[in-house]
Design a protein around this nucleic acid. Structure first.
Lengths: 357, 357
DNA sequence: ACAGATATTTGGAACGTTCCAATTCTGTCA
DNA sequence: TGACAGAATTGGAACGTTCCAAATATCTGT
């Protein structure tokens, strides 16, 4: 109903002080007398004043906008959703808000949203770059003094901070675990071959295989879309092989779920008839049936950590690029066949076990 | 490295025109000569100009900020994540950006983020209200002329637009379908009784039962937590009944999955020995074994629709509260026993999303 | 070549805040 | 009482844009 906006001047007038004083109160300055302060605050409440950050940002440096941009590839993927939640947590409690957008792996869209965010004066950016992102893409940002933190996928060449999980070590431990259970033919399923993450995980797989004294066979590496559907597809190919594998490490949990689906469709029970290990440890991994053995990446932790890193740089005023790789941890559940023998699911197809356990 | 920001005045100076002309170019006005326009554009590109929306918003109405706020209850929940993606789609292609926050059902946090969004001058707000949100909470917003669209959960009493799915009709069609397959005793499983959504779905169940010429028995309504575990619990109680049901509609897909688990634990095969229908059509519904017959709610569609509604109101400049209930659609798969009789299929989902990380 | 259009361009004056330098108000001490 | 230090307050002048009214340039037809 009130037509005009309530401004700092209205407050000043109503409280019988100057706009400068009101501004001081707004910023919690210690210069202002306690009595005046409370009076001003009272008037503000009474008139329903809302602070206009836009106007403030105009005057102050953009570092004070208290907006951080967050760009992810696919919110629908639990991994990124959790990442965003992690970021939101620390960002919110620091009094910032987040601009969140997802690119759907489209590099054009990424450019668009980043540009838009810039126009809105973000104080910093956390981004999981879309595939084939050019390292130079974020150059203008850092040149303008806007800190950038790259998460999940590293961006070699760009001199920005980044925080990725230890993909090599994670995959290696997964393979070793399966080998320890007696598996000799272990497949690597899913993922697009042209990404850094894929390379890292594949390298970890290879190291694991060799460390276990097994041979590395190219045919056991079957790439596919890193999605549930991709998992179904990949396990199909794997089973069609002459000497079929008895276990698989998957590019991520989505693929692993797809692999389980594919197995069941062929009347094979994941865990019992074929060992499956995922990567990420998304929330569903622990409640799925069978519960998924997977490499826990703690996406929310990455989000929190990335946000902290970003805030630090924002406050420091200068962006000193640092790279962090976060530790991962194999979480053994049921789908690898080694889990706590616990949920002895009755009525399970009693197939002949191959060689697991 | 360039220390100072490039402003419209710098551009003007470099292009040999006035700042007003540059502004006109910025706004794509048809008043400016074609030659001048391209020259100005060239200079802007050359100097690396970035538009300062903050300054612009200061001058223009807040409706022009091109920011929409989105608040959801739990991003980690695939339902809300998809909703957000839907919103982002239309919002982004309309040249807006979204401020996204999640409240985790905390009403205090909700208040905080909404206040913060307001300070940043959002042009509109899409919100799935946290439980126990007061209808008056959004009063100040609409009073300030900021359109609000409530999604998923309606907010009776608040005179804002809302868009919810047709829970009644959905549940009704599910029941009718089961009755059409010859089931006489159909249970309603899962969900907390004190929510509006529960009431709607239960009402739909009842209508369906009566429309099919069956009797409504209170004992067949078994509430529980709306989760997988709740489903296991509920089906346990259902089977313990004197005259046990032969089919069930479930509060949501999570419950339905739990019901399937519980059935199998009792050596009953979902689909063959007992018909199960879910609600929501989450992504896993199509790839699960057996594939889940369920009521498709299309959260992404709700997001898109809500965003469109909001944009319309923003452009109209006035918020005329309208309420929309979106159509839902029964998706018949295997778990109701009516699916393709040959369940030995690779669950190849047509959806080839690329959810990489 | 000139009036009257029409097409382009252009200086300010906002917008709501912060910041700086300057001012007024308190005491306090000699 | 006057001078002085500190505490508290206060008028502008920015910040980078848009908008308005007004000015100038470019065409028309005669």
């Amino acid at each position: 109903m009130t037509k005009a906006r309530v401004t700092v001047i209205d407050i000043a007038k109503a409280a019988g002080v100057s706009k400068s004083t009101v501004s001081l109160v707004l910023q919690g300055s210690s210069l202002v007398n306690e009595g005046t302060r409370s009076k001003v605050n009272a008037v503000m409440r009474e008139l329903g004043y809302v602070y206009n950050r836009g106007a403030a940002n105009l005057r102050q440096a953009s570092a004070k906008s208290r907006i951080v941009g967050v760009v992810v590839n696919d919110l629908t993927n639990g991994f990124f959703a959790e990442l965003a939640v992690g970021v939101d947590m620390v960002v919110q409690s620091a009094g910032f808000v987040q601009f969140l957008s997802n690119t759907g792996e489209s590099i054009d869209r990424q450019r668009e949203v980043v540009a838009s965010m810039r126009e809105h004066g973000i104080s910093g950016l956390i981004v999981s770059p879309a595939r084939a992102t050019d390292a130079a893409d974020f150059k203008p940002l850092v040149a303008a003094g806007i800190p950038v933190v790259v998460v999940v996928r590293s961006l070699p060449g760009a001199k920005v901070s980044s925080i990725v999980s230890d993909n090599r070590a994670g995959m290696m431990s997964a393979v070793k675990h399966l080998a320890g259970l007696g598996h000799k033919r272990i497949a690597f399923l899913g993922g697009f071959p042209d990404t850094a993450v894929f390379d890292d995980r594949l390298a970890g797989y290879r190291s694991g295989v060799e460390a276990a004294g097994l041979d590395y066979h190219e045919e056991l590496v079957i790439s596919s879309a890193p999605s549930r559907a991709g998992g179904v597809e990949a396990i199909g190919k794997a089973i069609a092989l002459g000497r079929r594998p008895t276990a698989a490490v998957c590019f991520n949990d989505a693929v692993a779920f797809g692999v389980c689906d594919g197995l069941r469709a062929r009347r094979l029970e994941p865990g019992a008839d074929f060992a499956v290990v995922g990567f990420d440890d998304v929330i569903e991994a622990q409640t799925a049936v069978p519960a998924l053995t997977t490499v826990s990446v703690d996406p929310q932790g990455i989000g929190r950590r990335g946000a902290q890193m970003l805030l630090k740089q924002i406050n420091a005023g200068k962006a000193e690029a640092e790279t962090v790789t976060t530790a991962v941890r194999l979480v053994v559940r049921e789908s690898c066949g080694a889990g706590k023998t616990a949920p002895a699911r009755a009525g399970k197809s009693a197939k002949s076990k191959q060689d697991a356990e």
